[in-house]
Amino acid sequence: MTARTTRLDDGVRSALRTLSATAKKGFGDPVLAELVQIRASQLNHCAFCLDLHLAIARGQGVDERRLDLLDAWEEAGDVFDERERAALALTEAVTVLTEGFVPDEVYEEAARHFGDTELAHLVALITVINSWNRLMAGRRIPPGSTEW
């Protein structure tokens, strides 16, 4: 696979990197942040972002079993705790927007596990990884590419 284009405005790249870093820092849970970004990237079929965030998660010491089962987190039993499950459900709801909005019960469950500030940063993190996914998958940037 070859990229359709590797051209990306430096201002766009810089703004998204800043937004990503700010959302991750404000969220405050780097491991869960990576799981969220991986899950959104799975849903969006973004090979570039999957490759990148799986490597980051492995570097943080995330257990391979958790990474292997992330795509089936709802069926994975106690592999993911309630807080992680709430974040992953919110990730799916924001990413897919099947009903045209995030269902109240999904948002309320996330709000039970995260304070207002954490939740705001989690939604921002999900939003920005979806933007990255669309930029990379839309241009077909291959995994591991250094030109994008």
Rank of each mutant, 00 (worst) to 15 (best):
G11F: 06
K25P: 03
Q37N: 13
P30R: 09
T127R: 10
E108M: 05
D10S: 15
A40C: 13
A57H: 12
F48E: 05
E84V: 02
C49W: 09
T6F: 04
A110S: 01
R4T: 11
A57W: 07
A21D: 15
E64I: 05
G77S: 02
V12T: 13
R65P: 00
R65W: 01
E99W: 03
V79N: 05
I126V: 15
A86V: 07
K24T: 14
L88A: 04
A15W: 03
N44C: 04
A72R: 08
Y107T: 02
G115L: 02
D9H: 13
T98K: 11
D68A: 10
E109L: 06
H45M: 11
V106G: 02
L8M: 15
D71F: 03
G59M: 07
R7Y: 14
P103F: 06
G11K: 08
A3L: 03
T18E: 14
L43D: 03
E74V: 01
R58W: 02
F114D: 00
Y107M: 13
G61D: 09
C46H: 08
R4Y: 11
P103K: 09
A111P: 00
T98C: 00
H53Q: 12
E105D: 14
G77Q: 02
E64L: 09
L67H: 03
R7E: 15
L35M: 15
G77E: 03
D81P: 05
I56V: 15
G61K: 09
L52T: 14
K25S: 15
L19F: 14
L43I: 10
L35D: 13
R112T: 03
F48Q: 01
A55P: 00
E75P: 05
I126H: 08
D51W: 12
T6D: 06
L52K: 12
A3E: 09
L50M: 13
F114H: 00
G59W: 09
F101P: 02
R58F: 04
A57S: 11
Q42A: 08
R83C: 01
I38E: 06
A93Q: 04
N44F: 01
G61C: 08
L125A: 14
R39V: 11
V62Y: 04
T18F: 12
